[in-house]
Amino acid sequence: MDAQLVAQVVVLAAFYSLVGTGYVLVYRASRVLNLANGELLMLCAYFLFALTVLGRGLLPLMVLLALVLVAVVAGVIYWATIRPMTGHPVFSIVLMTVGLAIVLRGVSELVWTAQARYPLEVLGITNKTLHLPAGAAVTVVEAGAVAAAVLFIGGVIAFLRLARIGMQMRASAEHPVLASQRGVNIHLAFALSWALAAIGAGIAGLAFAANVRLEPNIAEQGLRALAVPLAGGLTSILGTVIASLMVAMSENLAVRYADPLLAGVVPYFIILAFIILRPWGLLGEEEELERV
């Protein structure tokens, strides 16, 4: 297994784990799969694109602003559409996120059209190739994405475990009524979960847009990453990270040694395998599988 393959797997895994963490955070808070996660990924990239009008040289600020904006959007989505649906069956809430995804995609296409954009070009920045030892090569954006993934996910895990608010978020996710009896504003905690999830997806979106291209259907990358939290455990961030390496490796191996078209389906085979053998994933809680 050569170094280039390893590098590709790590990069893809970083991407998957960012999006996957988004799914996990939302699932813990609202017990649903946020199928609009891909659209949040796409939106963040478009926010960055819109902010490029500020001119070059301010890239860090633009990145920060784009992430803040998408976090706010996610918080608003939670408040306006998910919070009123407390108590409804999971199926309905998931379908609601699908409806939101469609609206977000349509609005983005309306505003920015389906034309492919290249934000880095607009900013005049070139995506140089970094040559790593043992003959591997990754782009600057890819390396940045891996670093960002490590920082973000590590930060989220630490935050949830150590910070007071993090503990309150975990408590609200486990038992909302009890948490509110203890004075926690659970809806604020949930909105925060959604915002953090959006930031994770947003980082992935920015990386993809900078590295490949920006167009509305990059939102589909979000669905592609769905296998990761399902395999890793919908309640475990650590499980998602492990699963992302697993899925990334399987995909890359399939592309290299089997049919390239297979890469798209490999995640779904993994999902099926886990559903049959271990539905709650590698590190997920063995929950009483909720009925619809």
Partner: peptide
């Protein structure tokens, strides 16, 4: 009501089962 100083110790489900004792105590506002 909690901020006014009324605290309810509920009937069932009284603690957060996945959190440690310390973390349970940290949650209370």
């Amino acid at each position: 009501t909690t901020s006014l100083g009324i605290a309810l110790v509920p009937e069932r489900d009284k603690v957060f089962l996945t959190l440690t004792v310390e973390e349970n105590l940290a949650v209370a506002r």
